[in-house]
Design a protein around this nucleic acid. Structure first.
Length: 470
DNA sequence: ATCGGCTCGCGCAA
DNA sequence: TGCGCGAAGCCGAT
């Protein structure tokens, strides 16, 4: 494994103890998990068992019933797969840092994976300071380690792209599975820990339960790999020409699994590379999977304001501020947006697709965000609305990709275009463009069917149905 | 149907 | 210092 993935976050040495502790947080999987493999090697060197632990934190920002269902399905899957490798995975509802400190008292060393969001960085920093033994972070969510790709916030994809491409030979390689020496399955740990299968989601008292479990996506690394294989067999070959069409839904559908760390981007990229799809299709997908995704990691890593309008570049701020007094063609409140009650059937369909399935079509995400800017009194409020709704309903919300995606709608990583009201020189999109390029009636019908199949009813849905029956 | 211009700033070439 | 060019677009001219 490449040394650049590994970072020791404190200066302590490995101590005498009962086990190596793998604090699983960002990478909930048994395969292609660099942090897990590093931990296995360390455990074998010290001739100790490896204990894996996941903290179920009910107060995780904006996490709701939908997210916890997906997370727990993944944990259940991974626990069974780790068991085959003689590794015990236990969970507990708790504050992660306190619990890691407690579990580390009997550990030789702690190993964890890496995340780029504020809370993930704070947790690791705080835990590393408090534990007495060695604390390692291993970067397993990026193909090219983020600080290796670039040491600063990048301006756009074109500035990061060559830096990533130069390093792919080194980092886009297979990760062999280490053989576990000492089993941890019989390990007795004092305290109340449980296997994911024994967990009932109703034990999470204080979470938002108004967002129902996604009927479309089931979590877990097994499902993730099946999804990738299905994509390669049935949709990859013409991904480049069909991916943008909302009516076709010709997407990989892998982003929820990537967000929850249930599959590795390295694993996916290798499967894509080794497939026999046309080069153009592979290139488009790998560009999104690696360059665009890791641009969003770069964004969160180097811009602490990644979830706020304050992350925007100067030119975008100037142009948006300059249009503050422009009259908006429509004005909607949060509730109108949330319940998909706008005048625009395409927009409403996109919002409903996200509510009902937990994922919005990639192309519609851009249109959706652009229109929130256009129909909100000011861009700062629009920014909040877009982040709030996406984080609440999308399974791939609260992810660097989501934050970068919203920021893009406001000009981040993009370039200026013809000036116009409200938007200034931020790129504009309109309904005429959608209808010119795609069969939007077919998209609306697809979403209406999704809603009725899942017994999801709303005033705006009735309008959608009427519209699509015209 | 296709094409150029719009508009800004990064980064490479010179 | 100059210049090419960039995630997904729009619009008007041809």
């Amino acid at each position: 494994m490449q040394n650049e993935r590994i970072k020791k976050l404190n200066s302590n040495n490995p101590l005498e103890g009962d086990y190596i502790l793998y604090w699983m947080q960002a990478s909930v999987r048994s395969e292609y998990n660099h942090a897990l493999e590093f931990a296995i090697n360390l455990a074998n060197e010290l001739k100790k068992p490896l204990l894996a632990f996941f903290a179920i934190y009910g107060r995780y920002p904006e996490a709701n019933l939908r997210h916890f269902h997906f997370l727990l399905e993944g944990l259940d899957d991974t626990e069974k797969l780790l068991e085959k490798r003689k590794i015990k995975l236990v969970c507990r509802i708790c504050d992660p840092v306190n619990e890691i400190v407690k579990l580390s008292q009997k550990a030789c060393a702690v190993v964890t994976d890496r995340g780029y969001l504020r809370i993930q960085k704070e947790w690791r920093k705080s835990a590393a300071e408090k534990v007495k033994c060695a604390f390692y972070q291993v970067e397993s969510e990026a193909v090219v380690p983020v600080n290796e790709a670039s040491g600063k916030e990048e301006f756009a994809a074109r500035t990061l792209r060559p830096k990533i491409h130069k390093k792919l030979d080194k980092y886009l390689i297979t990760l062999p599975q280490g053989k576990v020496g000492a089993s941890s399955l019989g390990l007795k740990i004092s305290g109340e820990y449980f296997a994911p299968a024994d967990f009932n989601i109703s034990q999470l008292n204080n979470i938002d339960k108004t967002v129902f479990k996604s009927p479309r996506f089931t979590g877990g690394e097994t499902r993730a790999l099946e999804t990738v294989k299905d994509f390669i067999e049935t949709r990859l070959h013409n991904y480049d020409s069909m991916r943008n069409d909302p009516a076709l839904n010709h997407l990989s559908h892998i982003s929820p699994y990537l967000h929850f760390g249930q599959i590795s981007p390295v694993h996916i990229a290798l499967l894509i590379k080794n497939s026999d799809a046309p080069a153009a299709a592979k290139e488009k997908f790998l560009e999104e999977l690696i360059v665009r995704r890791e641009l969003s990691f770069n964004f969160c890593e180097y811009n602490d304001k990644y979830d706020s309008h304050e992350s925007l570049p100067e030119w975008a701020v100037q142009t948006l501020e300059g249009r503050a007094i422009d009259k908006r063609p429509y004005i909607y409140e949060m509730d109108d947006f949330e319940k998909a009650r706008t005048h625009d059937h395409c927009w409403n369909a996109a919002q409903l697709e996200m509510i009902v399935t937990g994922k919005m079509h990639n192309y519609m995400r851009m249109y959706w965000g652009k229109k929130i800017i256009e129909w909100t009194p000011n861009y700062k409020e629009a920014y909040k609305t877009a982040i709030y709704l996406n984080n609440k309903y999308s399974l791939d919300g609260r992810d660097p990709n989501s934050f970068a995606g919203v920021a893009w709608c406001f000009g981040k990583h993009d370039r200026p275009w013809t000036r116009r009201p409200v938007f200034g020189s931020i790129r504009y999109m309109n309904e005429a463009g959608l209808k010119r390029k795609f069969d939007m009636e077919s998209y609306i019908q697809r979403v209406a069917k999704l809603c009725s199949d899942n017994n999801y009813e709303l005033d705006s849905l009735t309008h959608l149905m009427e519209k699509s029956n015209e």
